[in-house]
Design a protein around this nucleic acid. Structure first.
Lengths: 349, 349
DNA sequence: GTTATTTGCTACATCGATTGTGCAGCCCGC
DNA sequence: GCGGGCTGCACAATCGATGTAGCAAATAAC
């Protein structure tokens, strides 16, 4: 093993090249033209730097320039198709702009979310994306104090530009589809469509629930309160709730509106224990798309949120320096059962 | 809107408290005891710092201490169940240790991988995890030059400790299961089991392919070269290859060993166009677990790699300062069709 | 009552890169 | 041959936090 050789600095390159540190700095960056460093000197310095394996110490640069080259994003969790798609797009877009993405997950806990924001501020991220914010106002307060440009994605905030899915449209479309495909026409509890999952206090779920209610009402089937089971996003609680529901009803209802793929995991866990014929007498929809969920034993209508589009739109606002409190909507897409969606990244794996 | 107020620094707190910057620094950190700052002073300073919303500038601290508090991980892609599980575990474990995780995806491109490593080195990450390395030796060379502790996960490297799945065991188990469930017993091309996906030059695939070969040979069915179709991990190429294979054979073979979930996406895209009865005459296995893939219209045997276990083990090596070139194996688990795996994070969503 | 020792704090150099300012040398014109 | 302008670079301050060395006052020792 070799001795502990520290990384080369501009001072090392300066010594080796006979130039001053400031000249080295200029030569290695963009500013050498305006600082009138001769092309010959620049090339000589760059050659030496390359030979020494020099790379800029971003902590020093960031300290001096008060910018870090980092761009932060907070997401609820990594282990989820929707959010990991956002991560993928977020990262690609960051790289296109020469920024380094830092993605952190909050587990949907407000306290954790704020701790993360504070941490990212400590690292002087240049911009911050907050996806699925649980406490947007507090986030905005912190970012204001740190003078940090931020933008909300998926769930809007009142203090910064926001890009969100058109939850109302997606939920209305899905609800209409479920109604149309409902195997029965009655209004008994078992004949009804139940919405399961999500948090009634978060923006996305609230919008979806409202649209669900509106469509049912408009169809002459005003929903009972018990038709809306906002039991959170965890698979386990979804499993518990769907089982309890089936118990109460004496079987599956005519339709289920599942509020996210994680909820669908829990629901599926229960459904998989039921006879297939029972399942086929129930129309199922899921807010979120998953390629495998599209090919389950029973058909599932899905709403694909445009994670890529959300991120693109958010970066566009950063690029164009949008500061107004705009609320940009991105349309989700209703996807028929057994349809294969070809993602923008599917040429990779 | 407020004026552009810069963030408070220790100098601001020093001015407000009447103490010197170095006293403030000590008081806000851990070192105040050994530096003999009185408890009264510490509390006064901390009160003022809290009131001013002070938080440490990590760039400055990092510059001074030559550590950043960052821990980096390179993964091939975010948008994948296995790797996003790793991200989730990686992040949780980093936070437990007071570190900030930075996760970047390489798209499995060696050049991108090295650029990312260089970038992370520029930011002075304290440790680096490389998952699915495409060029481990080059990574090790860069980390050595930067004096950076690193560890390989999922794919091993020769220059640093590695934690990998026991691919040979997982693949052997899966192959045996496919053989046992094979609907026919002949040895014509259509009676055989085909392995599709993966990159024959990467460690994981090579191990799996070798195990696949060995089990078939041992069973008296030595594989033809055409039975191994290492067409990469992209869904699109898998779709192309499985279609071509079915064309050649005049239908589905007796069994398919699918080398990853992304490959399964592509395969499924083709299979979904075939009559269900054809599918049921073919036994399918997939190296990787996905809860929805477990409940497709046809049974799929799956191998669940223990992403959480891999990360835990890797962090353990960091914690215990393991520097030897150990190669730690973590066992994957063969999961029967229609089995619900309950993840360590499934109480969240 | 004088010399050690301890206490509580401050001054200053430092990490590495950036940038405003300054200053030789050179060419030019007249 | 002298002022003015340009070229090509060096010097030094700066960003914010840390830690060593040191200093005055308080306390202890004898």
């Amino acid at each position: 093993m070799r001795k502990l050789t520290r990384k080369a600095t501009i001072y090392d390159i300066a010594r080796l090249s006979g130039a001053s540190p400031s000249t080295v700095s200029a030569a290695l960056g963009e500013s050498w033209r305006t600082r009138r460093i001769s092309e010959a000197t620049v090339e000589a310095i760059r050659r030496i730097a390359a030979a020494e394996g020099y790379s800029t110490n971003m902590q020093a640069r960031g300290l001096r320039k008060a910018r870090s080259g980092l761009v932060g994003m907070v997401i609820p969790l990594h282990d989820n198709r929707f959010f990991s798609s956002m991560s993928q797009s977020f990262e690609a877009a960051a790289r296109d702009r020469g920024l380094v993405p830092v993605i952190a997950s909050s587990m949907r806990e407000p306290a954790e979310e704020l701790r993360i924001v504070e941490t990212l501020i400590s690292y002087a991220v240049d911009y911050l994306f907050i996806a699925g914010a649980t406490d947007p106002d507090a986030v905005t307060a912190m970012c204001r104090a740190a003078n940090l440009r931020h933008i909300f994605v998926d769930l809007p905030g009142k203090g910064a530009p926001s890009v969100v899915s058109d939850n109302a449209k997606g939920a209305a479309d899905l609800t209409r589809r479920l109604l149309a495909d409902r195997p029965v026409t009655g209004a008994t509890p078992r004949d009804r469509i139940y919405l399961i999952g999500g948090d009634a206090t978060d923006y996305a779920s609230a919008q979806r629930i409202a649209a669900f209610r509106a469509v049912l009402t408009e169809a002459g089937l005003p929903p009972l309160d018990e038709q809306i089971i906002a039991c959170g996003y965890a698979p386990r609680s979804a499993l518990r709730e769907i089982a309890a529901l089936c118990d109460r009803l004496g079987g599956l209802p005519a339709g289920v509106f599942v509020n996210s793929v994680t909820v669908l995991e829990g629901v599926l866990n229960h459904l998989s224990r039921l006879p297939l014929d029972d399942l086929r007498a129930c129309v199922i929809g899921c807010y979120d798309y998953d390629p495998f969920a599209a090919y389950l034993q029973f058909p599932v209508h899905m709403v694909r949120q445009d994670a890529h589009g959300l991120i693109q739109e958010a970066y566009r606002m950063i690029d164009e320096n949008v500061l107004d409190l705009v609320l940009k909507m991105v349309e989700p897409e209703l996807i028929a059962p057994r349809t294969f969606y070809d993602s923008p990244f599917s040429d990779r794996g």
